[in-house]
Amino acid sequence: MPIYSQVLGHEFKKLHPMLQQRYKHIEEKPYKGSGVMKRISGGSKWMFPLKLMGTRRKLMFPEEGTFIPFTIQHKPKIGEVGEEQVHWERVFYFNGKKRYFNALMSFDPDRGIIKDYLGEPSVMYSDLALTVLENGGLHIQSKRQRAVFGKKEIPLPRFLQGIATVVETFNDKRGVYEIHVSVQNPIMGTIFSYEGEFTNDA
């Protein structure tokens, strides 16, 4: 059973039909979409060096802008202990530069959450809680986080965490998926955010 329908249970059927279609077979076959980020913003300027370092791990990037082309891909994988995983690749195209925001996700049946390893190789881990909105949209909220150092993981106090909120919906009038992402820190405020739209590639 797909990891996203497992974590949502009966709520999965409340998703917009197009979101159900997109997530139903996500572990069985690759998916690719493309679109435009209407806005990408990066928060505090002093974080520029940290975000530039993040480009090496395909996690963060310092660029900002409007109407930035991007692609999104999901690819099924099998983990070391045989668990189903989904590799996410998000690529943003800034005037010839390719920037990434990648992750590897799997389902934890004991805790009923999605496990999210961010970056390549991973430098951050986060629990993800999924809920369905009244309009059939998918709401994703990060919870407990850990810094990853190889095979060692260290829990992060909340003041060091980047709390992510993701909302994905489908616009029936325009026939596009809409995505809104915001990552906030309790002290630093916005780390980065973006909002845009995309369609399935044939």
Rank of each mutant, 00 (worst) to 15 (best):
2 P>Q: 02
2 P>L: 08
4 Y>R: 06
6 Q>P: 14
7 V>C: 11
9 G>Y: 05
12 F>D: 10
13 K>F: 13
18 M>E: 13
19 L>Q: 01
19 L>D: 00
20 Q>G: 11
21 Q>K: 11
21 Q>M: 10
23 Y>C: 02
23 Y>I: 03
25 H>V: 07
26 I>H: 02
29 K>W: 04
31 Y>H: 12
31 Y>W: 14
32 K>V: 15
32 K>E: 11
32 K>C: 09
32 K>Q: 13
36 V>M: 14
40 I>G: 03
40 I>S: 02
42 G>N: 04
42 G>K: 08
45 K>D: 11
46 W>G: 05
48 F>W: 13
49 P>F: 15
54 G>W: 01
56 R>W: 08
57 R>S: 10
58 K>T: 04
60 M>R: 03
62 P>M: 04
67 F>T: 13
68 I>N: 08
69 P>R: 00
71 T>L: 06
76 P>H: 05
76 P>K: 02
77 K>V: 13
77 K>L: 14
79 G>M: 11
82 G>F: 04
83 E>T: 15
84 E>I: 14
85 Q>R: 12
93 Y>Q: 11
95 N>K: 14
95 N>D: 14
96 G>N: 05
97 K>C: 08
97 K>R: 15
98 K>C: 12
99 R>T: 11
99 R>F: 11
100 Y>N: 04
100 Y>H: 12
101 F>G: 08
104 L>A: 08
106 S>A: 15
106 S>D: 12
107 F>P: 02
108 D>P: 13
109 P>W: 03
111 R>V: 05
112 G>R: 09
112 G>N: 05
112 G>M: 05
113 I>Y: 07
116 D>E: 10
119 G>A: 01
121 P>Y: 06
121 P>I: 10
123 V>Y: 07
126 S>K: 00
128 L>A: 12
130 L>V: 09
131 T>Y: 07
132 V>E: 08
134 E>T: 11
135 N>K: 04
137 G>N: 04
138 L>N: 00
139 H>W: 12
141 Q>W: 00
144 R>G: 06
146 R>A: 10
150 G>C: 06
152 K>T: 14
153 E>D: 13
154 I>T: 15
154 I>G: 07
156 L>I: 09
156 L>V: 10
158 R>K: 12
158 R>A: 13
158 R>H: 15
159 F>G: 13
159 F>H: 10
162 G>D: 02
162 G>F: 01
162 G>L: 01
163 I>M: 02
163 I>N: 00
164 A>W: 00
166 V>N: 08
167 V>S: 04
170 F>H: 05
170 F>Y: 11
170 F>R: 01
172 D>P: 07
172 D>E: 14
172 D>T: 09
173 K>E: 07
173 K>Y: 10
173 K>H: 06
174 R>C: 03
176 V>I: 13
177 Y>T: 02
184 Q>C: 04
184 Q>A: 03
186 P>Y: 01
188 M>I: 11
190 T>H: 00
190 T>R: 00
192 F>G: 00
193 S>N: 11
196 G>L: 00
196 G>N: 02
197 E>T: 09
197 E>L: 14
198 F>H: 03
201 D>R: 08
